[in-house]
Amino acid sequence: MTAARILVAKTSLDGHWRGINVVSRALRDGGFEVILAGMVTADTIARVAADEDVDLIGLNVGGRVEVVERILDTLAEHGVKTPVFAGGTIPHYAVEKLEKRGVRCFPPGSSLDDIVACARELTGTVA
């Protein structure tokens, strides 16, 4: 039995690792294999998602929604069809924008249980 694999990447250059660590831990406890990419460029996210053959991509957002949009464009350019979800400081106006592009969003205050449940849904795995 192979566990579902999730790539978790930081999209901002700030030093805030807490959110990403807490979420990664929750996903691990949910039985997922979490591949931490650290701070990488959009091209690298596309490359890593393909090389690691992941089932889901999680983006840690640091307020700037343009960065996330650029990553989505890059993934599309590379033909990566892996589902994406995002968490972190996502402004209200951006949530709607991203969800229109098929990205499930978890702004501050979201519950870890909901995030793990969403990961299960998007990867087609059960608890």
Binding site: A3, R28, G31, T41, R47
Partner: peptide, 23 residues
Amino acid sequence: PSSPFTGGAILGDRVRLSDEHAR
């Protein structure tokens, strides 16, 4: 390592990998 309790894992070796090498 995987967690012996949940079977999940945090694979963090890429964090030390330079972006240049990663792509």
